[in-house]
């Protein structure tokens, strides 16, 4: 058990891990539960998960790093996903993404200096008949242009 962990973090992680142990194949649900509550999966969680599932820490690491969704460091306060896939490209998705990234001064996966927004690429949101599409946190956005998306991003946290 990591020694330098504050007691409340230890308790939180223990609760989130044990809460999923009754499931068949609990590893993804554990990682998802931790990320849902803590916004990322802290390094200290890895040996605890490995212990609980009786697998090696390397295996937990391997699984976590395989999936695009999991983060080992906190993201911005909001996550903006912009669709890069074909149907959105057919209606100007690439130009939209370029304009928004330039405006925010970040690259894909980057977080703005203020910590407000992390921009992630996504390959289809199932909004392909109303592209270009994006998702702000869990809110779907369709038929959006660069000006519109910039405005929505600027209005976050207001």
């Amino acid at each position: 058990m990591p020694k330098d962990m504050p007691q409340d973090m230890l308790e939180t992680l223990t609760r989130l891990i044990t809460g999923q142990l009754h499931l068949e194949g609990p590893l993804l649900p554990i990682l998802q539960a931790i990320q849902a509550e803590l916004d990322h999966v802290p390094e200290q969680a890895i040996p605890m998960i490995a212990d609980a599932l009786n697998i090696s820490a390397a295996e937990v690491h391997g699984v976590m790093s395989f999936y695009h969704d999991f983060r080992s460091a906190p993201a911005g306060r909001h996550i903006v996903k912009i669709c890069r896939a074909e149907a959105c490209q057919a209606v100007g998705g690439a130009a939209l993404a370029d304009a928004v990234l330039a405006d925010l001064g970040v690259a894909w996966h980057g977080t703005t200096a203020s910590g407000a927004v992390t921009v992630e690429p996504v390959y289809c949101l199932g909004l392909c008949a109303c592209g270009p599409a994006a998702m702000i946190d869990e809110r779907p956005v369709g038929r959006i242009d660069a000006a519109g998306l910039k405005r929505m991003i600027a209005e976050l946290d207001q």
């Binding site: 074909e86 959105c88 390959y123 289809c124 199932g126 392909c128």
Partner: peptide, 9 residues
Amino acid sequence: EGDSGTFAD
């Protein structure tokens, strides 16, 4: 349902 252009599921 990962295919671009699909949303029936």
